[in-house]
Design a binder for these strands. Structure first.
Lengths: 242, 242
DNA sequence: ATGCCTGAACTTGTCAGACAAATTCAGGCA
DNA sequence: TGCCTGAATTTGTCTGACAAGTTCAGGCAT
């Protein structure tokens, strides 16, 4: 964590210039497709070497904002923030910020997962149910053995999203699961087993599964909501009156 | 478009090395947190100059895969593809595929926007309301003048997401708004005005606004749900029994 | 007068070297 | 054994040169 926070705070010139370049593109009101100033002009504008500008441009190319053509120039492909969605700007994983920031992400998760669980109850197939039950079984065994089941917990939620028959929802759940992998740790680590957090979470998981099995959409939504609310409590976050 | 496809297909060494580096990271089975080989070794491995490696690394830093520390090295922060969420893999905007694909994205939007609109009703401030009303007013004027109000429509939904006081929800709405910008065109183009689609959408917008103004969370959710369902009908998409 | 071709100027892409800043590691000393 | 110091190592930035690709202007032919 200490090494990680040092990583998170280290800001280099090229990082900074990438950010400034983004902000400047937004403030200048460039149209998509517009040609940006030459590297030479950007060097002058930001007062840095060409290498730093090129690295900043590389970053914006990766984000889909800019496209370059040799001999011609750099062109605005999309406005910053519009090409992809990230939970944080600097590439770190999420549960590193203030409780408010973590709660914001959880709230997004609440909205998405209650909706997806409801759809799963309406659309699940026999093989979806098998997949969900398999992940549930792995968590069950982890309760007995005291082992870590973060992966199974993640798979459980991805399997539910898959049961919606909407690939975008499944992909979003994969994305969120990865970004929030650390938030599951207090549930499934040794202390979580001892304190009964794992057991409680599994109780909630079983309720979710039962509702989906029964094809009861409102019970599924309700079970997912309760699970997410409890999750916030387990992490000591403020639910702000959902 | 022809210029655009030329841009899209132009593959430079630094682009290629970024891709190869990604593939290599995946194939080597590095753990998250693992230290990657030095720039010098990567230059040797890929047979390119240090500048090309640095630009490739800059790209992967932007994607959240890699973090670097001066004097120490480059570290794997997340597996390639897991740091950001995109609706399509190649960075293009969405309404290009089959109706099913578009409907999937709309469904995601349905889930997120009904939830966000409910939260907005609970948390909106006076200035949030002004912002929402301003966008509403622009659409109102567009109804009278027959002009295009895709931008105002987009701003309306972003303003609602902002009223949740959850920056993640706002940012997600900005992302989705851009990706779906083409889906608003049939509502606000000349044919949309003539056919009354613009007028109908505005009626729905006004209902949403009224519910948020009144702080009525369930009315807000309901109004947003109806608006999204109508939007799907306007686009001829299948709502699959919501 | 218009269109096409050629060469120069310009712009991005890559390579190489030097030095700065930060980190790591090994050796020496208390 | 632990701490400090210096050397080695590694990333960060700057600079210059040359390659590859594009654009633009001028000249020539029709």
């Amino acid at each position: 964590m200490d090494a990680d926070s040092r990583l998170a705070s280290a800001s280099r010139l090229s990082d900074e210039v990438a950010r400034q370049l983004e902000a400047w593109i937004l403030s200048e009101g460039f149209q998509v497709g517009a040609r940006l100033p030459t590297e030479k002009l950007l060097c002058e504008r930001f007062g840095v070497s060409r290498a730093v500008i090129r690295e900043a441009i590389s970053r914006l190319k990766a984000e889909g904002c800019i496209r370059t053509r040799q001999g011609s120039g750099a062109y605005l492909a999309s406005l910053p923030g519009e090409g992809s969605f990230r939970l944080v700007r600097d590439g770190s994983c999420v549960p590193k910020g203030l409780p408010r920031e973590i709660a914001d992400v959880f709230e997004m998760r609440y909205i998405m997962e209650t909706g997806a669980t409801e759809l799963a109850a309406m659309r699940r197939t026999a093989s979806d149910l098998e997949r969900i039950a398999e992940a549930l079984g792995r968590m069950e065994r982890a309760i007995s053995s005291g082992e870590n089941a973060v992966g199974a917990d993640d798979d459980f939620h991805v399997a539910i999203a898959a049961a919606t028959q909407n690939p975008q929802l499944e992909r979003f759940q994969v994305f969120m699961g990865h970004q929030l992998s650390q938030s599951r740790a207090p549930t499934w680590d040794a202390a979580g087993h001892v304190a009964g957090r794992a057991k409680q979470a599994q109780l909630e998981h079983r309720r979710i599964y039962q509702a989906i099995l029964a094809g009861d959409r409102s019970a599924a939504r309700q079970a997912a909501a309760e699970h997410l609310e409890s999750g916030m409590l387990r992490l000591g976050l403020d639910a702000r009156g959902w």
